[in-house]
Design a protein around this nucleic acid. Sequence first.
DNA 1: GGCAAAAATGCATCTCAGGCATTTTTGCAC
DNA 2: GTGCAAAAATGCCTGAGATGCATTTTTGCC
Lengths: 173, 173
Amino acid sequence: MRLTVEHGFDRVTIDAIAQAANISRRTFSNYFACKEDAVLHGEQLHHQGLLRALRERPDAESAWTALRSSVRGLYSSWDTQPDREWALRTRLAREHPSLMAQQLANHAAFARDLERAVAGRHNPGGVRSGLLVDVFLSALRVGLNTWIDEEETRDLLEVVEEIMDEVETPFGG
Amino acid sequence: MRLTVEHGFDRVTIDAIAQAANISRRTFSNYFACKEDAVLHGEQLHHQGLLRALRERPDAESAWTALRSSVRGLYSSWDTQPDREWALRTRLAREHPSLMAQQLANHAAFARDLERAVAGRHNPGGVRSGLLVDVFLSALRVGLNTWIDEEETRDLLEVVEEIMDEVETPFGG
DNA sequence: GGCAAAAATGCATCTCAGGCATTTTTGCAC
DNA sequence: GTGCAAAAATGCCTGAGATGCATTTTTGCC
């Protein structure tokens, strides 16, 4: 991330990263399939955290409620805002198509995991869980982007909650 | 696409594609940045068609209605179902992470275009258009996947309309 | 037929992913 | 602490990909 800031993402070679991390080029490849994966690793951790929170929600909660509650619980458990790194990563992904592509693929994988995790929960409108999860992730993504566009002036959770409220208003008409 | 079916996506080199198309390797790169782009080109055409349809919708229609109507209009204007190629491409993208990543990046770009195209339209619940477009695309994607999972036995439009109806039921609770 | 623009090509270079064998480090029983 | 097996890290190598640049070929039009 530091090298990326200093020289730009596509001007940083894997060799340079390996060197800066005091590991061999080959070892880098043992841990990450590509540069993109390395940059987006923090996001993967976020996904894992959210999944863990979701699994701990009481079974009685509906799918949508459990998802919302997981976000609320996780984000408010942080002692500091996920400021610099998140903003940096998100901005980077906006500018670099390859990063964007990888990020979206990660999101799709995350969606599959979430879908499995909410399977079996009550689901008010009979909406299939794939759709529900997709919409949830859209809201999360739009929330993050809004937060970034506002230059991280508000609380991330606050922005996300706002978007989630919007999602709960009907789309039709 | 033919070579991919015969030998598998990742065993087809750009050289092979170029040779089969009677063009030089270099010319391939003049048209497509990578193999993935070539395979997904049909989808790009679909996006363009949908955008064109959207721009021709009457201004009085709300954003959501205009989006739904565009799909309805475009899909029912086809004389044949987009059967083989679509199913093939979608299944391929499911199996190959790099293809999936590229596809999702294309969807994101498409989302930006759609967002611009519906900007200014009436929007019932005051939902921001980014969110609206995202949800619309989720519905389209889920519809396509459902259609595939049902082995293309029904009409694609029918499946998509069904999902769109689901989206119009509230998510909250 | 001639000419300019656009398309296609060839070439060269830098980078990457990943298989395989080898070396180094780590964790643990003794 | 010593020895040993598993895990991690490394080095080397190959096939493939992206892309800049100069050159050749094709196309469209007067």
